[in-house]
Amino acid sequence: MVEAFAVASGKGGTGKTTSTLALGMALSYEHDVTVVDADTGLANLLFHAGLVDVDVTLHDLLIDGANAAVADATYERFGMSVVPCGTNLADFEAADPERLRDVVATLAADADVLLLDSPAALGSKSAVLPIVLADRVVTVLKPTIPALSDALKVGEYARSYGTGSAGVLFNKVRDEAAVDRIADRTEEYFDGPTLATVPDSDAVRDARDAGEPLLAHAPDSPAAAAYREAAATLTVEGGDSAAVADRFSSAVVPDRP
């Protein structure tokens, strides 16, 4: 069984990548987890996962004519399978976003949980595809009006494509009581539970600087505990792997003439 989650926010700087890897690690205690940096235009997962020096990345799977295999771009790190994306702009421009479907289909065959670290803004096809492909969206939110406003937009995009909501993760929180006051409304608008309230933390920056996921770098930090709580709240409702893989691959657009 596999369930694909897009980790999305609508706004940059909310801590999506940190959240993706932290959730991934927390879920990996119970599930086979594959994490994909689907933010192909602004990739940064490689910095968080100590994969800066790898040769093959998602870009090599998305560029027409490149013959890398999915396995070549998949790295076993921190108990997860991690597919980083490169940061070369020319590679991004050469990439065919539609090929993400095949990649996701292949990865779905061997995973219980697929986490797609998704682009912040929804301004392009490559940015919206992770949300189209996912079963459900985990919305990472800073409790500010601009962040909520953009996340509401992501929520509507997801709903438009029949992608469900897995809930809301409040991140970089400095006043937990304040979040408590808006949680009910937010749960209603986002049609899902509050997965956790993650406190603002220096440990997150330190982990990024060390090139390690938060749960590996500072497992005892309150932020790490909050992510474990989020993972525990998230009930994985995977469908049959073969059926899911078929869903992704059979939706592949015919080759362009």
Binding site: P143, T144, I145, L152, K153, A178, I182
Partner: peptide
Amino acid sequence: DANTVAAFLADESKVEAIR
């Protein structure tokens, strides 16, 4: 800030317009 955010979320017509 949170008070402002709470007020924003309480304004259902504004939220519905965004959606």
